[in-house]
Design a protein around this nucleic acid. Structure first.
Lengths: 341, 341
DNA sequence: CTGAAAGCGCTAACAG
DNA sequence: CTGTTAGCGCTTTCAG
C-alpha cells in the first residue's frame, strides 16, 4: 500500500494513478456513459489498489441528488417498527435508495429536531410515522419539496401521501366481534397514551362501537414503563379484584395481553368460555404461548413496503407525482381467546 | 409565504431577506463567532420566516466535518440491537454526533456493501458488530482513517478499538454453573450459526468447559427461521424424544429457551429439580413467564454506551487517540430454571 | 463585529 | 469515447 498521509483519497488520486481524466474515472465508478473496456479496467484497478471510496458528500452537492430516504419512527424497541423497516428495506432494495432511520421517542419536540436534522441532508423522500406532528414539523415537510409518506394511521389529514390502517375502525371492529361473541362486561387495559395517538384512536373506536350497542366500558387502566408481560399480569389481577364481574379485557398491545393471558390461565379461568381476551398487533413472536391471543394484524410489513414503493415512484416521477392514499384492512385473528358464536 | 418556485432555500436567500452577508448568516445559524444581537435577531427571524433548513451536504463538504457515526449491525428485529442502539444514542446525545444505522442481515457481502455506502458519507466514526469481517471490509475500515469500534465480542483481533464480552468465556461459565449444580446429561439447542460467530463461540466455550470435566454434549440441534418460541417447543420435544435421559438444555437464546420452558412445564417436568434450562441474553421482555429462565446478561446497553463514548472521545482527540479494549463481564442470572447446589 | 474571496470533491454540460 | 470548464452551497481564511 502506498504511503498513508491520512488524507482521504480523491478522484484526482485515482485519476493520477490510472492516467485517466477525473471525469472519466467518475464515469467508470458510477457506470455512467460509455467508457472503453481498456480504460475502465485501468480505472477499476487503480481505484481498488488505492482503496478509494467515493465521497458522496461532494457527489451529492454536485449532482443535487441524494439517494437517502429519511424514516422517522417513535421507537426501535417496539417490535412493530422493525417489521415496518423490513418492508421498507425490501421495497427500496432495487431502487438505489437507502433508508436512514431517526427515532423520536414519541416526543413531538424530538420529532421536530430529528426531522430538521434529516432534512438538512436533503433526502429524496420522507417516511414518517403518524399524522400528528407539530406545526413546525408539518411546515418543514411541506416546504421540503420532496415526497412525504405518513404511515401507520389514516385517521387524519396527511401532508402528502399516507399508508396505514384506520385505528378507530380497528377498535370498532374488535368491539363488534366481542359483542357478537356475547361478552358483555368489558375492560380496557393499555399504555398511557398521551402521545400514542394510534392506541388512543383504537380506544375511541372501541368505546364508540360499544356505546352504539348500549354497552359501556366497565373498567380501564393505563400503565407506563416496565416489562409489558409483568404489567399485563399485574394490571389484569388488579382490575379483576376491583371488577370481578368482567368477562372480557381488550389490551392495547399483545405483550400486556399475553401477560394477562398467562395470569388468567394460572388462575384456572376458562378461556374463552368464561373470559375473553384480545390484544393488538399480531405479534408472531408470541406464537408458542399456551394459548394464542386474539389480536389484529396491523399490516406493519405491508405498510413499510407500500410506503417505500410510493417514495420510489414519486422520486422517479419528479414533479408529476400526485399524493396517494392507501388504506389497509387489518384482519382479526381469533386465536384461542375469543369464543366464536 | 413567499412564492414557492420549489428550489430549496439557500443561505443566500436568508442573506437577501435579512440584508446581512451570507457569511454572517452562516455564523448566526451555527452559533459561531461573535455577532451583534441586532443582526442575530434579524437573521434568525428571516430564516424562520422563510423556513430555511441548512444544507448539511454543502456544509460538510466545506468544513470537512460530518457529525455522523455509522453503526453497522446484523439485524434490527433481534431484540438485542435495539438495546445497543439505545446505549449508543444516549452516549451520543450531548456530543453533537448522530448515529446512522446500517443492517447487514448477517451477510459479510452485505456488510461490505453497507460499509462502503456508509463510509462514502465520510462519517466521524464507525461502530460495527463483531470481529469477523471480509478482508475488504477490514481494509476499508483501516483506510478510512476514522475511529472504529467493534462491539459485542472480544474473542479475536480488532481493527481498532473493541467493546464487548467474551462469548467463549460466557459459554464456559454457563457450563461450569451447570456442572456445579449437578446436571450431567446436557444438550445444546441453537440457531444455525454459520454466520453467527458469537453463538458459535459460546457453543465452543460451553463444550470445552464440559470436556474439561469429562462431560460431553449428549445431543444438539440447530434451527433457522420461524417463531422462536414455537421452535423452542418443537426442538425441545424432539430432542427429548430422541434423548430421554437428558437433564439439561442450554439454548443459544432466551426466546427458544422460553419455548422449551413452556413446553416442559406443560409436560409437568419438575424444573429445576429434575431438569434445568438456560438461555442467553437476559431478555427482560420475558419477565412475567410462569418461571424465569436462567440466562446471562450480554451487557447490550453498556456495550453501546461505551462504544459511543470511545468514538466521541476519539473524535475529540483527533490523531492523538489510541485504540481501547473494554471487556465487560456478563453475569449469570439463575432465574428459576437452575437448581443451586 | 462584519465581509470578500477561495475552495471542499465531485458531476452536468458541453466540446471535441 | 474522452476531456474541459464551471459550478453545487457552504465554511475557511484573511481583511477590514
Amino acid at each position: 500500500m502506498s504511503a498513508n498521509d491520512n488524507r482521504p483519497l480523491t478522484l484526482r488520486d485515482v485519476s493520477e494513478a490510472s492516467g485517466v481524466s477525473e471525469m472519466t474515472v467518475s464515469r467508470v465508478l458510477r457506470n455512467r456513459g460509455d467508457v472503453s473496456d481498456a480504460t475502465r479496467q485501468r480505472v477499476l484497478e487503480a481505484a481498488k489498489e488505492l482503496g478509494y471510496v467515493p465521497n458522496k458528500i461532494a457527489g451529492a452537492l454536485a449532482s443535487q441528488r441524494v439517494n437517502l430516504v429519511a424514516v422517522i419512527i417513535p421507537s426501535m424497541s417496539n417490535m412493530v417498527f422493525p417489521e415496518v423497516m423490513t418492508g421498507i428495506s425490501e421495497a427500496l432494495e432495487e431502487t438505489g435508495l437507502q433508508p436512514v432511520v431517526g427515532v423520536t421517542g414519541y416526543s413531538p419536540e424530538k420529532e421536530e429536531k430529528v426531522l430538521y436534522e434529516m432534512l438538512s441532508w436533503r433526502p429524496s423522500g420522507v417516511i414518517i410515522a403518524g399524522l400528528e406532528h407539530s406545526d413546525a414539523s408539518r411546515a418543514m415537510l411541506r416546504a421540503s419539496g420532496i415526497p412525504v409518506v405518513e404511515i401507520m394511521d389514516v385517521d387524519g389529514t396527511p401532508v402528502d401521501s399516507v399508508v396505514g390502517i384506520s385505528h378507530r375502525r380497528a377498535g370498532r371492529q374488535m368491539a363488534q366481534a366481542i359483542l357478537k361473541d356475547g361478552y358483555e362486561h368489558i375492560a380496557f387495559l393499555g399504555t398511557k397514551m398521551a402521545q400514542d395517538h394510534r392506541a388512543r384512536k383504537r380506544f375511541e373506536g372501541f368505546t364508540e362501537a360499544l356505546a352504539k350497542a348500549g354497552v359501556e366500558i366497565e373498567d380501564r387502566e393505563f400503565y407506563s414503563g416496565g416489562s409489558a408481560l409483568v404489567k399485563g399480569r399485574e394490571m389484569t389481577k388488579e382490575v379483576l379484584e376491583r371488577s370481578p364481574d368482567l368477562d372480557f379485557i381488550y389490551y392495547s398491545n399483545d405483550l400486556i395481553g399475553a401477560g394477562g393471558l398467562l395470569y388468567l390461565l394460572e388462575q384456572g379461568v376458562k378461556i374463552p368460555q368464561d373470559f375473553g381476551l384480545a390484544g393488538f398487533n399480531g405479534l408472531n413472536l408470541l406464537k408458542g404461548l399456551p394459548r394464542e391471543l386474539a389480536s389484529m394484524d396491523a399490516c406493519r410489513h405491508e405498510i413499510g413496503h407500500t410506503a417505500a414503493e410510493i417514495i420510489a415512484r414519486r422520486v422517479e416521477e419528479g414533479a408529476a407525482g400526485k399524493p396517494e392514499r392507501v388504506v389497509l384492512e387489518p384482519k382479526i385473528s381469533y386465536g384461542d381467546t375469543l369464543r366464536r358464536r
